[in-house]
Design a protein around this nucleic acid. Structure first.
Length: 271
DNA sequence: AGTGCGGCCTGTCCGC
DNA sequence: TGCGGACAGGCCGCAC
């Protein structure tokens, strides 16, 4: 679920309530996420004061002095600030209680997400060390995509969803950006010209930025740091619109499986 | 090295 | 109304 805009919206929502706060207690009701929650999340994190809450790719990095908690929201996860002791629902797996009387609550029905701990530089963590550039940074360029794509026969949609190429572009925004750039999701990555990668870089930046402005896209579970849904769903051009009219031409939005993911596009606007 | 797939989970929806 | 099966925003780890 949560792609980059949702994770960034979450970061902005929870950071003010966390930074400068001492962690008084960590309550774990369900350890079994994608990986088991390590014991350090209780033994080391408790008593620490949060310094910063940053984001790298779709990971949130909570700097707690002695190390960093890493959070990933998987497909259905959310992190939000609640009053301590707020009624617990079925999938509320973790509460990190703060001296303020609030708590950071981790909720994840499908448990594809993760809560991890690292005492070292979090950017060197095995899960983060080999990731591609941030799409909203200067390091993300058409030249970067074009160079990496040389010789690649995988579809360009699969290519841009690969976190080692560029981070943060999940299924929704990959579909939207390719539509905006007029590129068929089925085209081999290695056959896309530098000029079209220019358009794609612009489209990815535009779509992600607009989605952040709208607080992300909520299809079902996603809520931001204050428990509110995101509103970018109303601006989706192709995602989940199979059979609907193309908003740019008189064509019809198609759906196909590409890399085992539902892929939406207009075969008249995208080639 | 690049590519394709299974698997992790729960919930929902659709067809019978 | 019940039930099986497909599918859902991510992404690791494996076999080829």
């Amino acid at each position: 679920m949560p792609e980059l805009p949702e994770v960034e919206t979450t970061r902005r929502g929870i950071a003010p309530a966390l930074e400068g706060q001492r962690i008084t207690e960590v309550i774990i009701r369900q350890r079994r996420l994608r990986w088991p929650i390590p014991p350090e999340l209780e033994t080391v994190l408790t008593g620490q004061t949060v310094r910063t809450v940053q984001r790298r790719a779709k990971y949130l990095l909570i700097n707690a002095g002695k190390g960093h908690a890493l959070a990933h929201l998987g497909m259905s996860g959310s992190l939000r600030i609640v009053p301590a002791g707020w009624p617990v629902q079925k999938h509320d797996h973790v509460d990190i209680r703060l001296a303020s009387g609030q708590a950071l609550r981790y909720t994840d029905p499908r448990r594809f997400g993760a809560l991890l701990w690292t005492a070292d530089d979090p950017l060197l963590h095995p899960l983060l060390a080999s990731l591609g550039p941030e799409p909203l940074s200067d390091a993300f360029t058409a030249e970067h995509l074009h160079r990496l794509a040389q010789g690649r026969r995988a579809p360009v949609k699969t290519f841009i969803m690969d976190g080692h190429v560029v981070v943060g572009v999940g299924n929704i925004y990959a579909n939207e950006a390719l539509f905006m750039a007029g590129i068929s999701p089925l085209r081999a990555a290695g056959e896309v010209t530098l000029g079209r990668y220019e358009a794609l870089v612009t489209a990815i930046r535009t779509v992600l930025s607009a989605a952040i402005t709208q607080g992300g896209t909520t299809l079902r579970d996603y809520v931001g740091g204050h428990g509110d849904p995101g509103f970018f769903k109303q601006q989706l051009q192709v995602y989940d619109r199979a059979g609907g009219g193309c908003l740019r031409c008189q064509g019809t939005i198609q759906i196909k499986r590409v890399g085992q993911r539902s892929t939406y596009f207009c075969d008249r606007c995208q080639d």
